[in-house]
């Protein structure tokens, strides 16, 4: 494992911890999109179908369990926790996330590396992860006062994707036959979706102002 991959995984882990911290200690999920969180739970469920059959390393298995456990518990908190769910901006979080799932599934059935159930589900999870942030970005645009933790959560998620691209560049030059077009293209699309957010995040940081995305 290279430094970019490790840094990417750690950034991903921190993003989840920041979100859980907000939900668990402040008992608030204001500004967080339940739609995006549900999509992530689905992404991990589809991708980690091989968790008990394809052993790679202890690190790998533990991280998979953390991402599965955290994503489902975040969804649970936002839907059912009697205090947390009151802070959910239901009227603002209107993105039709079901409309993302079907096209991703169809695309995975058409474009995949191997037509098997596990491989199609893996590919589906890559396509879905690429667009899963969209409901969150739309919600951020509608939120007048984005609190620091929510801004940091999205920033860390974007940083994780950027680091994964550096990881692929590194692996491409250091490993023989390391070519994964599906992973790379969907990963690149995913990272580009953050470009706009990054721009405004750094602007607000530079000018020491609160983060605000223009409509």
């Amino acid at each position: 494992m290279n430094i970019f991959r490790l840094a990417g995984d750690m950034t991903h882990l921190f993003s989840v911890l920041v979100l859980l911290l907000k939900i668990h200690t402040i008992k608030s999920c204001a500004g967080v999109s339940l739609k995006t969180q549900e999509l992530y739970a689905l992404v991990f469920a589809a991708r980690y179908l091989d968790i008990f059959t394809n052993y790679i390393s202890l690190y790998n298995t533990v991280m998979k369990l953390i991402f599965l456990g955290s994503s489902f518990s975040i969804v649970w908190y936002m839907r059912y926790h009697k205090i947390v769910r009151r802070s959910y901006d239901k009227d603002q979080d209107t993105f039709r996330h079901y409309f993302l799932i079907l096209p991703c599934l169809l695309l995975a059935l058409l474009i995949n590396e191997k037509f098997t159930f596990k491989e199609v589900m893996w590919t589906f999870s890559l396509y879905l992860e690429a667009v899963a942030i969209l409901p969150q970005l739309v919600l951020l645009q509608r939120t007048r006062n984005i609190d620091n933790l929510t801004g940091q959560y999205v920033f860390l998620l974007g940083a994780y994707r950027a680091l994964y691209i550096l990881n692929w560049v590194y692996r491409y030059f250091t490993e023989p036959h390391f070519v994964h077009w599906i992973t790379w293209v969907s990963g690149l699309v995913q990272t580009l979706l953050y470009a706009d957010f990054f721009y405004y995040y750094f602007q607000s940081w530079k000018n020491n102002q609160k983060l605000h995305l223009p409509a």
Partner: peptide
């Protein structure tokens, strides 16, 4: 080696 199915990334 079946590189494709060796999904070692998260």
């Amino acid at each position: 080696l079946d590189k494709i199915l060796y999904h070692d990334e998260l």
